[in-house]
Each structure stands twice: as structure tokens, then as C-alpha cells.
Amino acid sequence: MLKNKHIIVLSTHPLEGRGLQSFLCDEYHPEKVVVHATPQTINDTENSRCDLFFVSADLFVLFYDYFLLRKNKVIIFGTTLWNDSQSVMLPFLNITTNEDSLKAQIDELLSNTFHHENSDGLTSRELEVLTLVAQGLLNKEIADSLNISLHTVISHRKNIAAKLGIKTVAGFTMYAAMNGLITVNG
């Protein structure tokens, strides 16, 4: 399921990070798994190539905005105690358990995560553009933020509109809110 995928594991505890990296490599044989102690050390190439982030609960909270933008490819890991205290439903991996349970949980999370990404046929880049549109950014601002040309942003927007059958910014915003890409007050 993770063949050809690039994965970033984020944990402040080196052993925890290395442990998850090793488990993923042994069980799923992805193309690459790198471990970081903070998203600040992830370079642009790694970031754009990354298919899935495994992030520890504390780092998720600390870099909430960063991960919210990548919400559709984030799996949070930690103890069930943390997960129970959250009101937002996010893919969550309980790591205080045995190997079999860990494997079963990851299997399920992966099928949900990758299914979600493709359920309406949007690519991860299109989801990023959609999220920024929903946040009220203008095309030029989106281009700057993602380091792509204005022309590419417009072309992404056309594709999103065609795939979703939605034409207005208000419609995009609502789609994003309904799919957890953005959070709405109230």
C-alpha cells in the first residue's frame, strides 16, 4: 500500500521516530521514510514529494497550522488519552499497543487516508489549492504560497471545478469545510 510512497515521520523522541520508521519499512516497504524532530527541518523537495506524514500528537498541536494545510495526508500518533481529548476527528494511531494491533490500525488508516485523497478525484496539489481558495486567498497569493505560476493556479482551479462540479468560491469553501480541509468558526 505504501510502495513508491515517500513518508515523513515527525517525533521529538528519536527512538520513537526511528522505531516507527523501522516498523513502516519492514511491514510496508515504502520508497523512503525520513525522520524529523520538527517540520522546520523539512526542506521544500521533501515537503512537495511527501505522500504521508506520521506526526506525534505534541508536534501536531505545536505546528497546527502547518499540518492543517496537509490534513488530508496526516496521521497523528500518540496515546489514546490524547485522542480522546480531541473534538476534531483525525486519522489517529495508538502506539501504546502490540505489533499486531499496530499493523491492523495502520492498514485501516492507510486505506482511509489514500481513499480520502482520491474519493473525489482530486490530487494532493489540487487539495492544497482548494484549501487556500477556501481560506480566501487570491490566485496570486496562492501562486506565491505554493511557489507555482499564476497560470498553474488557474489551471488547478479549473480542474477542481470540473472534478467537483462546483463553480463558486463559496461552494469551494463549503466543500473544504465539509471535508475537514479547513475549520470554520461557529
Binding site: 473525489d120 467537483l164 462546483i166 461552494g171 463549503m174 465539509m178 471535508n179
Partner: peptide
């Protein structure tokens, strides 16, 4: 124009994406 498109989008969301 944007008004009827918005209603169209609202209907689409209701039909296709409300889970």
C-alpha cells in the same frame, strides 16, 4: 449570475458531498 451558481453549488454539495 453568481447567485444562481451559488445555489447550484449548494445543491451539488447537498447531493454529492453531504455524508
Amino acid at each position: 449570475e453568481s447567485l444562481d451558481e451559488k445555489i447550484f453549488d449548494l445543491r451539488s454539495l447537498l447531493m454529492k458531498y453531504l455524508t
